[in-house]
Computed example of a mutant assay.
Amino acid sequence: MFKRIGLLILANLAVFVMLSIVLTIVQMIFGVNFGTMSGKSLNLGALFIFSMVVGFTGSLISLAMSKQMAKMSMGVQVIDPSRPRNNLEAYLVEVVRRQADKAGIPMPEVGVYEGEPNAFATGASRSSSLVAVSTGLLGVMGRDEVEAVIAHEISHVKNGDMVTMTLLQGVMNTFVIFISRIVGWVVDRQILRNEDDGPGVGYYVTSLVLDIALGFLASMVVAAFSRYREFHADAGAARIMDGSSPMIRALERLGGVEPNELPGSVKGFGISGGIGSLFASHPSIEDRIAALREGRYNA
C-alpha cells in the first residue's frame, strides 16, 4: 500500500501556499496590506477575512477542477450511457444507474481507465460527479466485488464527501494562515522590534515558513477525517449491496494487490489509498474489514 503523503492534501496545500506567497509578494512590492495591518497594529477581524479568502480559494479551485483533472491525469474514458461500445460498458452503466437510484442521487458519469486495481469518485456536487474504475480492478474482481467497489464510490457521492473534505480543508487553511500571520506579527514587532509603519522581513519570512509547517499539521487532521469517511463509505456500500459480504470480499482482494496511485484531486475518494502514517487517506484493509463485520458505522 502507499506510504507517501496523500496527493489530495498536497494539492490543496500547494494551492493555498502559492496564493499566500503571491499575495505576500504583492504586499512587499506595492505596500498593500489587505487591511490586516495598519501601522504598528494588527487588525484581527480583517486578518481573519483575508485568511478565509485565501484558505478557501485553494480548496474551492481544487474541487472545481477535480473532475476534469482526474479525467486528464488518469486518462479516463467516459462511457456514453446511451451508446455503450461493448457489454462491459453497458454493464458498468447499468450498475451505476441502479445503485445511484437506490442511493437517491443523480446518475454520475461513468468511466474506465487503464491501471492497477483501484476506483474513485469525484466531482463538485452530487449532480456533477464521476465514478471511474480501473481495468486492473475489473480484471481481478468478480462481479459482486466490482459492484461493491462501485457502491463504495456511490456512497462517497451520496455522503457529499468531496464537498465536506473541501470545506474542512478550507477551514484548516484559514486557521493556518490566520495563526501564521499573528505569530509573524509578534516576531516582527515584539522580537525583532520593527518600528516601521508596515510589516518587516520578520513578518513575511515567519508567516510563510509557518504556512508550510502548520499546513502539514493541518493535513494530518484532514487525513484523519478522510479515514473516518472511508469507514462510512464502506458501510454505505454494504447497505446498497444488502449485506457486507461483497464489500468484505472486495477489500480482501485489494489487500493482496498493489493499487495504483490516484491523482491529488481524488486520492481521498478511491477505494484504496495510502496507509501506515498520519497522512494516510485510508484506514488499513484489516480495520475496514473489522468495522464492516462489527457493523460499527451502520447508523
Results as ranks from 00 to 15, higher is better:
Ser38Pro: 00
Met241Tyr: 04
Arg239Met: 14
Val78Ala: 04
Ala233Leu: 04
Met247Glu: 12
Met165Thr: 09
Ala46Trp: 10
Pro108Ala: 08
Val183Met: 01
Ile105Phe: 13
Met162Arg: 02
Tyr91Phe: 15
Ala218Phe: 08
Ala70Leu: 03
Glu153Arg: 01
Leu208Asp: 05
Ser284Leu: 12
Phe225Gln: 03
Arg227Tyr: 10
Val53Gly: 08
Val78Pro: 05
Arg181Thr: 03
Phe216Ile: 06
Ser128Leu: 09
Val186Lys: 00
Phe225Leu: 07
Phe2Tyr: 14
His282Arg: 04
Lys71Phe: 05
Gly270Gln: 09
Ala64Tyr: 07
Tyr113Gly: 06
Val26Ile: 15
Leu262Lys: 04
Arg85Glu: 13
Asp242Asn: 08
Gly111Pro: 03
Gly268Glu: 00
Leu210Asn: 02
Lys158Cys: 04
Arg296Ala: 14
Ser41His: 08
Phe120His: 11
Ser207Ile: 02
Ala46Gly: 13
Ser219Ile: 02
Met165Ile: 00
Val171Leu: 15
Tyr228Ile: 05
Leu44Arg: 04
Val78Ile: 14
Val140Tyr: 05
Ala290Leu: 08
Leu210Trp: 03
Asp197Arg: 10
Asp161Pro: 05
Glu94Ile: 07
Ala121Phe: 09
Arg83Cys: 07
Pro259Ser: 03
Glu195Phe: 00
Gln169Gly: 15
Val209Cys: 11
Met107Tyr: 06
Gly200Met: 10
Arg189Tyr: 03
Tyr113Val: 11
Ala70Arg: 07
Asn118Ala: 11
Glu252Asn: 15
Tyr113Leu: 11
Val176Thr: 11
Tyr113Ala: 15
His152Asp: 08
Phe178Asn: 14
Leu251Ala: 13
Ala70Phe: 01
Ile154Arg: 05
Met52Gln: 07
His152Cys: 10
Asn159Phe: 05
Gly273Phe: 05
Thr174Cys: 12
Leu278Ala: 10
Ala132Glu: 13
Met28Arg: 13
Arg85Gln: 12
Gly115Glu: 06
Ala148Gly: 03
Leu208Trp: 01
Gly256Thr: 14
Gly270Pro: 10
His232Glu: 14
Asp80Pro: 11
Met1Pro: 15
Val133Glu: 01
Ile182His: 05
Gly264Gln: 06
Arg83Phe: 12
Pro108Phe: 06
Val186Gly: 08
Ala119Trp: 05
Thr122Leu: 04
Phe30Cys: 05
Ile275Glu: 15
Ile61Val: 14
Lys40Glu: 06
His152Met: 03
Tyr113Ser: 15
Leu262Ile: 08
Gly123Cys: 07
